[in-house]
Design a protein around this nucleic acid. Sequence first.
DNA 1: TTGTAGGCGTTATCAC
DNA 2: GTGATAACGCCTACAA
Lengths: 324, 324
Amino acid sequence: MASIRDVAKYASVSVATVSRVLNDKGYVGAETRKKVEAAIADLNYRPNEVARSLFKKQSKTIGLILPDIMNPFFPELARAIEDTASKLGYTVILCNSDEDEEKAQRYIDVLLQKYVDGIIISSNTILEKTIRELNIPVVCIDREISKEIPTIVVDNKKGARMATRFLKEKGRRKIAHIRGPMDIVNANERCEGYREVVSGEQWFKESYIVNGNYRMETATEVVLELLRQHPEIDGIFAANDTMAIGAIKAAYQHGLKVPEEISIIGFDGIALGKASIPELTTIEQPLYKLGQTAAKVLIKLIKGQDIEKTFYQFNVQLVERDST
Amino acid sequence: MASIRDVAKYASVSVATVSRVLNDKGYVGAETRKKVEAAIADLNYRPNEVARSLFKKQSKTIGLILPDIMNPFFPELARAIEDTASKLGYTVILCNSDEDEEKAQRYIDVLLQKYVDGIIISSNTILEKTIRELNIPVVCIDREISKEIPTIVVDNKKGARMATRFLKEKGRRKIAHIRGPMDIVNANERCEGYREVVSGEQWFKESYIVNGNYRMETATEVVLELLRQHPEIDGIFAANDTMAIGAIKAAYQHGLKVPEEISIIGFDGIALGKASIPELTTIEQPLYKLGQTAAKVLIKLIKGQDIEKTFYQFNVQLVERDST
DNA sequence: TTGTAGGCGTTATCAC
DNA sequence: GTGATAACGCCTACAA
């Protein structure tokens, strides 16, 4: 690959001049500029980003730390982030933390060594302090760590309320909830939203809330047991779509028809919900928008621009399909 | 962040010495080594990868160009690649090409500028010539471009034969095929495999092969039409799982019970197949293994090591679930 | 308007 | 064994 020196020689100017036309900085005579541009074209020269990074101490690269790209919730986020970053001239490094703080920390170290300009992370294990000490912009997506750190999330509680109320409106009278992991903020918020709607009802029992881990298989088991214990249940609000599908399976296995005998609603709006039969009614998050915003906010921060706020909370939307 | 110079000063040695202990190269006295190591620890020094890259002309980074990470086929591949790369000390940059050659080319340019050490790509549009001119190792995954370029794929034709035969063994007598895009090698191979099994049958008609584009919605439409035209059909082999699920939907809409009245089998073995009801019978690819191999082979190539072969073809496996 | 030169943090080649 | 020092390719004072 040709270097700036080659271009300079070819155009019979100094490297400084080439650099100037490259970056559109400082004075360059019209004639000279033309010569240089011709040289660049002739030599098919592309500036070496690594050398640039070394000098500028930034790399036009951002790190994206997700629990696991195989979890169907994350690809759309990742896609939106990559799209947006790419449009703005940034490249994204993908990291899978498996919810493991140590692993996340290792990735962060590597990213720092590579001079990434910023990081987008979805994690509940990482600490605010750790992030602060990074000295580069960080934005959190989907999981909130602290109000101090720019965060992109959705109104989980409201969504949960919408889901639960919707089940009630559909005439369901004994509504259960499969909640997500205790250590994930959004799972708690969704559970809280459910509670707000049902706690006043006299039919409500604590045992209508069962623990899931956001995964399908576990949800199936847990719901099967729930239905055995409480055959009166006629509605389920699952804290995410994956578990909702697990719940549908359980309902079938229990011999219940969905939606005739039991209604099931999920949360997230992932593509999977359209693949199930019946298709899943859900509280849809604007996933692409979330990812896009995360990338935009992060890059603003990188460029030292002001951001309007530090907490971006998007609205969710009820999408009625065939499971309710 | 502390630099090698800071460490040198702190340990009262030269940067050369620090570099030596860092890289375990050249002679370093036991005493000196200890001093340096202490300094490194005290200053919490981590070598700057960018500077290293500049000097070495490699970045310990690989590029991963996929059509679209939102396509449920790719996350598992991406995950395997990232896992493996990470274990071997490499970082991966994610790129979504949308099957667009220009876009892929732009990504390649950027990756080159960033000195990536190699690229893993899944594409049918890119040309062998283009890849050759890159002068860095490239391996193809899932889509074969040329026998000259290291390629990781699966025995598509065999898998297709297995699928079709399986349907026959299940007593199905009128078996249709939804094929994938014409310009994708694996789609043609799968279609070919189907053909090999059915072409001898007297019931076989050309119109039993319909065109899909590997997407669910299109598959549903296409299968609906197919069933209208040919109500005798009692088995469908879809060229991928996503279309198979679309086919299941179509069958339901047409009033057919799966698997009682019609059997449906897919190809790929993606997680989606376990989310559908009934769960999908499929020809499973060892996706993780494929990704892992791609990463391993690429890194071997990067290190200048020999690879055993240039064409890695893995076996597929029939996974019987509830749709057949 | 253009060129010279120093430095970004490392590594590797020499001397010593 | 250890230490200067010249690259790697680029950018930006500062001179000219």
